[in-house]
Amino acid sequence: MAVTRSADGSRTTQSGGLSGGLNTVGLNMVTLAAALGVWQVGSVLVASPFFPGPMKIVGAFVELATRGDTFGHSLWTHAWASIQRVLVGFGLGVLLGVPLGLLMGLYPRLYAGTRSVLEPFRFIPPIAWIPLAIIFFSGLTRFAFLIFLGAFFPVFTSTLVGVARVEPIHRKVGVVHGASKLWILRNVVVPTVLPDIMAGMRVGLGTAWLTIVAAELAGGISTGLGRMMVNYAELLQVPQVIVGMLLIGFIGFLMNEILLIIEKRLFRWRWQVSL
């Protein structure tokens, strides 16, 4: 698959691009070790309970993971609660954002006619919906609603924009061979828009994580990583708060990586996959 295009020797071949093998991994390992080192040394020098070093964090992590928090909830209970909420809300956002984006992209009048209603909503941050969500919904519904708002618009907007990118000539290939509208949608429009959909999904996922933590911080429930962090913050227990933060970062990173792997699989036809 690795096609290198050396025109006449004057042009150097591009190898690997941004994901260039062991060198990058090694470099990242060194950076990570250095950062942890500086942190550990700093914490020893400051010697304050509010500035725990990495070793303290690891200790807090092991404790939370094995024995659970002060209420008896394990770290995994919290993490799974958050992940579940994100997946439901995000899933709803994609399930609605993609078809609606396709529909309005294919029939621009539909978008033009509803713009004045749709667009202002896009600029209300999901976090601003938290007070209303607390009044109207409870439990999973509340979180699903808020995360849906965070995930829907990035997915919807990039799908909408992507449809405009469909090459008229590609549509015409279908038309001159007698293809139905549905065939063109499935075999021309969707493949063209897919990279935009995936990009929108990654942005949406970022917003979803952002929203879930904020929503959980707002309270009303007993589980979730955000909730766990607030509980420990109230007890002035910094290591446990940081464990929550790092786990949120790590899970978000993992989900993004999964989407990237899917993207690489789907878009083998592309010259390069953007990061």
């Binding site: 000539i169 015409k172 290939v173 001159v176 061979h177 075999n187 021309v188 493949p191 036809w269 592309r270």
Partner: peptide, 16 residues
């Protein structure tokens, strides 16, 4: 009817 077309501009689908 059985009609086919070859276009002036590049018309292959890049994803296929």
């Amino acid at each position: 009817q059985s009609i086919s077309f070859v276009f002036q501009e590049p018309s292959t689908f890049p994803w296929l």
